[in-house]
Design a protein around this nucleic acid. Structure first.
Lengths: 73, 73
DNA sequence: GGGAATTATTACCGGGACGTAATAAGGAGC
DNA sequence: GCTCCTTATTACGTCCCGGTAATAATTCCC
């Protein structure tokens, strides 16, 4: 599964999808990743603060797009 | 031109390449993008502060890789 | 609807990011 | 070497990010 990441919302939806497919709660995943449940929640709901809106803007203006791709492990 | 973005260094090298191919100085590009020359410099030299090292770590642990791709305009 | 589990949001606080401005460090050409 | 142009780094101040902890809000199942 892969897609283009233009906004923080794209990022959030993708992370949400990965997590639910793994059948993990935010709290469980947060513990494993060493982050807070609050952070994961904001990440998944696309709060701009999580991924530098500035960086996305810069890349966009540079004509660079980001693609995320799930790697099979 | 495209590639995998695993580290802040990858990001920096990519931005540097785009900028030099456009024959722009950091100061010129910074003005156009609305960021500081200091920011661009740190971006290109891969200072961890610019792209959340935490976010890259989270994505990596989730089994997600980021790919950047230059779009022809 | 009621209750439990999960997620989203808030307040507060400490640390880090980024702006300006200045300065140091390279590099190119003479 | 010297000068000019460009890039990297520093000091300082401000603001945002993200942690903890608590509290809404939501979802799900009965």
């Amino acid at each position: 599964m892969q897609g283009v990441m233009r906004t923080t919302q794209d990022l959030g939806l993708m992370v949400h999808g990965v997590r639910t497919r793994h059948q993990l709660t935010q709290a469980e995943l947060a513990t494993r990743l060493g982050v807070s449940q609050r952070y994961l929640s904001e990440l998944e709901t696309g709060k701009p603060k999580v991924l530098n809106a500035k960086l996305l803007s810069v890349l966009d203006q540079l004509g660079v797009e980001l693609i995320y791709r799930e790697v099979q492990e």
